[in-house]
Write a protein that binds this DNA or RNA. Structure first.
Length: 705
RNA sequence: GGGCGCGUAGUUCAGCGGUUAGAAUGUCCGCCUUACACGCGGAAGGUCCCUGGUUCGAAUCCAGGCGCGCCCACCA
């Protein structure tokens, strides 16, 4: 190469790739091209490829889970786009019922008011104000990851069109008789003042006490003695010989008189109680006999249903003892009542012993308050037929779950699912479309419709929901795949599948990919509240988006959780820079009048390294298609660094023939394309510097296999 | 109580029946060699969790155990 030529490029292209200079500029170039929208893609594209983002909550903040999930999704989408598919990746956000309402309620509390003072209408105005101002923040953060999503189709789960979809779905179920109103023991969050689903209760092991209380001639072990006031039976196992003779009999036992005020000494009172036999009782636990409190325990509620027992509600929606608990306890919080009743029982010698005890306490997924099971009138959706549909979808391979080991839990869950409590006592959400109803629907009821509603289902009228049009649903449904963390497999994927099956007769996607969970270096959960989280935006600032993406992808085996350490990003950054310099070398090496070609390798390139790369391209394609991201990333890394750079470039240094030039050019262009899904920014930046006549953005160049 | 995943160099992970077990990162020693010091060359570093079994041969398959993590469940 000529000295002058070398000098020219040496000054044009810096020795080090600096992501910060390139990323925003390149992302703008992509946006300006319009290529994220399928209808703007160049060339003839017969096959479609469609996927939806897992909509983050409007209250959300970008975390490593997003970074991993969206990187992997973008890798697939970018490859498909380069392969010539009409790709659509649809973004949006979820209104996040409880979470979002909590945020605004906290604001109100600071202002010394609350939603009830404000009234429903004003409160909802505040909600919308908040969402207009802050609800898009998470999407702005997502852009930093370089995602090739179609922002012109951004959706929100409370868009007008979406509201229509929810209404249509509800009424459809209602008319089928699958939606009913009933009083059941449900999980009630005292702080959020709403029902929450079984899946939104976290059971945390906590230290407590196990109280052994005398019931006539028996002793019963309980962790919640205050619920004694709502007992309507005792239960034993049907095969327990010790108690067989008492089954079906009513016992007279001594209890505490709850109509005496708490200021006065405790006094005894005789009460009658029935003994029933039920399979669910564990003979081995405690004394083998349990007290049944149908109103405040889910198991006890079910026992009461089987045996036709009465239910006495003694705890109210604020977590305080109500009038049924008697004047002695009324108004006390459950914890206070527990202390009081133990004191009382001890006074009249009804406490046999108290043991230290570890047990599981249900806490609200959103606010961590203790969950109080209590009877409440709620709306339910019958799950029998829908569960069948979801099972059938998997069994008939209409939808495939990756990795396949998740099929087990999926089926198990559906085989044991109870009717879905779909009502929430919130204001922020989809109002139940029945005259006179104040409640809203569980957020997941609308999430369940995501792939349908975002594409414009149910085709009511055009333009009713932002840009979603009739054509989108017809053209792009069903989608090709969906991906998420395993934690929402039951909350979300299952429900999207049965919704799709019920409303369209098709699974809303062909593949569900359950990706790994990002853990800390020592295998702990990443959590903001524990301070174990890592902020992806800071990492991007420090290492660049490509480094983050490549680092994550290189560890995404799909089978194993990902222990995240910054050394991954060091590797990614170095690799991006390495490739930058490979390109720099090639640009300097090739003669000024060299003609770059983009289409395919010249016929005469038969060298070993060229065929190796062609073989690699086939494997990379296969890897990405099968969600083997780590394999793809690592084999690319190996080839680029140790074959291309270490061997071929070193050997090329004292060669100046046409074949060497062609080979260098071919290797560079092909590697750029293969690397693009993983490291879109640095590759696009290099691409822009390669003098290829008539080239388009690398984003839409043809995939090399 | 059921179920699942994982235990391999200091660290994060590949390898999943066959020559001296690999990569990245970290460490140490040389090199600013005209693409790259985010680099190049070299080195050290491993009872492949334990115990049995199958096999000519096991990190790899099987059984049991130990440890870590996760999911489901009506432990009162």
């Amino acid at each position: 190469m000529s000295k002058e030529y070398a000098d020219k490029f040496a000054t044009d292209i810096p020795k080090t790739y600096t992501p910060r200079d390139a990323e925003d500029r390149i992302y703008s170039a992509w946006l300006n091209s319009g290529f994220f929208a399928p209808e703007n893609l160049p060339g003839e594209r017969k096959e479609k490829f469609v996927t939806c983002i897992a909509p983050p909550n409007i209250t959300g903040e970008l975390h490593m889970g997003h970074a991993l999930e969206l990187t992997l999704q973008d890798i697939i989408v970018r490859m498909k786009r380069m392969q010539g598919h009409r790709t659509l990746w649809l973004p949006g956000t979820d209104h996040a019922g409880i979470a979002a309402q909590n945020v605004v309620e906290k604001q109100l509390a600071k202002e010394g008011t609350n939603r009830h003072e404000l009234g429903r209408e004003k409160f909802l105005e505040r909600m919308w104000q908040w969402r207009d101002q802050y609800g898009g923040a998470i999407l702005e953060q997502l852009k930093k990851l370089g995602l090739s999503v179609d922002w012109t189709r951004t959706k929100f789960t409370m868009d007008p069109g979406y509201q229509e979809a929810v209404k249509t779905a509800f009424l459809h179920y209602y008319q089928k008789g699958w939606i009913y109103k009933g009083t059941r023991v449900i999980n009630w969050c005292i702080r959020c003042a709403t029902a929450v689903s079984d899946l939104e209760v976290n059971y945390v092991t906590e230290k407590g006490k196990l109280y052994f209380i005398k019931y006539g001639q028996f002793t019963i072990a309980t962790a919640r003695p205050e619920t004694k006031l709502g007992d309507t039976a005792l239960a034993v196992h049907p095969e327990d010989q010790r108690y067989k003779e008492y089954v079906g009999k009513e016992l007279e036992i001594e209890s505490v008189n709850n109509s005496v005020s708490a200021e006065q000494p405790a006094e005894p009172k005789k009460v009658k109680i029935l003994v029933v036999a039920d399979e669910t009782v564990d003979k081995e636990f405690g004394t083998g006999i349990i007290k049944v409190t149908p109103a405040h325990d889910l198991t006890d509620f079910e026992i009461s249903q089987r045996h036709n027992l009465a239910s006495i509600k003694i705890i109210d929606e604020r977590g305080r003892m109500n009038e049924n608990a008697g004047i002695r306890y009324q108004g006390m919080k459950t914890a206070e009542a527990r202390e009081q009743i133990i004191k009382d029982l001890e006074a009249i010698d009804l406490v046999e012993k108290i043991e230290e005890y570890e047990h599981n306490v249900g806490r609200c997924d959103r606010c961590n308050s203790v969950i109080e099971p209590l009877p409440s009138e709620q709306w339910f959706l019958k799950m029998r037929e829908l569960a069948k549909l979801a099972l059938e979808a998997v069994e008939s391979s209409r939808v495939k779950i990756h990795p396949p080991r998740w099929e087990g839990p999926y089926k198990h869950w559906l085989n044991n699912v109870r009717d879905w409590n779909i009502s929430r006592q919130l204001w922020w959400g989809h109002k139940i479309p029945i005259e006179g109803e104040n409640d809203v629907l569980d957020t997941w009821f609308s999430s369940a419709l995501w792939p349908l509603a975002t594409l414009g289902w149910p085709l009511l009228r055009q333009g009713s929901g932002g840009q979603a049009s009739k054509n989108d649903f017809e053209e792009y449904y069903p989608t090709d795949f969906i991906t998420s963390d395993r934690s929402i497999l039951f909350l979300w994927q299952v429900r999207m599948i049965f919704s799709g099956m019920e409303f369209t007769g098709q699974s809303p996607f062909k593949d569900v990919y359950v990706h790994a969970t990002v853990l800390t270096k020592d295998g702990k959960r990443m959590s903001k509240s524990l301070g174990t989280g890592v902020n992806p935006l800071e990492l991007i600032e420090k290492y660049g988006t490509d480094a983050l993406r490549f680092g994550l992808a290189s560890q995404a085996t799909g089978l194993q959780d990902l222990r995240f350490g910054e050394d991954l990003l060091v590797m990614g950054r170095k690799f991006a820079n390495k490739f930058w310099n490979i390109a720099r070398y090639v640009l300097i090496k090739l003669p000024e009048d060299y003609t770059w070609k983009i289409k395919k390798s010249p016929q005469d390139l038969q060298s070993e390294i060229v065929s190796k790369l062609d073989g690699l391209a086939v494997n990379i394609t296969k890897n990405i298609t099968q969600y083997e991201f780590a394999e793809a990333a690592n084999s690319l890394y190996k080839f680029v660094w140790h074959e291309f750079a270490d061997k071929y470039i070193e050997e090329s240094k004292d060669k100046n023939d046409q074949e060497t030039y062609d080979t260098l050019a071919y290797l560079t262009v092909t590697c750029l394309k293969l690397l693009h899904p993983f490291m879109p920014f640095v590759t696009e930046e290099i691409w822009s510097k390669i003098p290829i006549p008539g080239k388009n953005l690398l984003l839409v160049e043809n995939w090399p296999s």
